[in-house]
Computed example of a mutant assay.
Amino acid sequence: MEVFTRWHNWDTARADITASGAAVDVDALDAAVAAALRWHGDQKRPTGDPYVEHLLEALEVLVRGAGVTAPAVLSAVVLHDVVEDTPATLRDVEAEFGPEVAELVDWVTKPPVPGAGRQAKRGAKAAYLRRLGDAPPEAVQVKLADRASNVQTLDRMPPDFQRRYYAETLTYIVPLAEPHPWFRAWYASWSAGFAHLR
């Protein structure tokens, strides 16, 4: 299974993209990364790493792995958590990046469940993941890249979380990868590599 953890900062990512010759609009990504950094601020991942590393991993999955070059998809993957995890709104995203990017971000944003208990939150998350089956292919690519970033180093998380997240990924995310050949192959390799969590 290929792991996408080379791009720890935007300078490295930008240099890699430029050197690769990929038909990627790096100026559009400059703006998306700057907005993501502004909105996410000093947020950290559960591992303690800067949150931006997750966003750049998901971008790396799309660019280096799946070969995606569509500007809206790449901007959306960098911005996919801003509405869910920061004060930014969909209106903010649309104002800066247009309706197409805002729509993709909307598709992959979990709806808030304020004041709900653990069971209600799990139910809402399952409903959100099922709804992705109706998402446009571009939004699915964003979600597949997001989840690939999260699960590629699943062994760094607590054991009980590993089992739950592995099962959730097999149930809801792996079927979304079926129409996308690169993602289908990557998730097949990933699921085999973590098969001990079944």
Rank of each mutant, 00 (worst) to 15 (best):
A188T: 09
R131T: 08
H40P: 00
A23P: 01
H80T: 09
A23D: 15
F161A: 09
A148C: 06
V73R: 08
D30S: 03
E60Y: 00
E2A: 15
R147A: 09
W39Q: 01
W190D: 01
A32V: 02
D49V: 06
F161S: 02
A185T: 01
K143L: 15
A72R: 03
R130G: 12
P136H: 04
D49A: 04
V108S: 06
R6T: 11
A88H: 02
T89G: 05
P158H: 14
A32L: 02
T89S: 13
P87L: 10
A148M: 15
R164D: 05
T169C: 15
T109K: 11
V142P: 00
A188M: 12
F183H: 14
G67T: 12
L176A: 04
W107Q: 13
E96A: 10
L104D: 06
V113G: 15
P159S: 05
R163K: 06
A192F: 01
V77N: 14
V33D: 02
A95T: 07
G115T: 00
R184V: 08
V77R: 04
F161N: 03
T171R: 07
E103V: 05
A15P: 01
A102C: 03
D146G: 12
K110E: 10
A148F: 06
K125P: 00
A70T: 09
V61A: 03
A28K: 02
L62S: 03
I173P: 04
S20K: 10
P175L: 12
E100V: 11
K125R: 08
A139V: 02
S191G: 06
A70H: 07
A76N: 02
A28M: 08
L104H: 14
D146T: 13
P159Q: 07
A124T: 10
F97D: 01
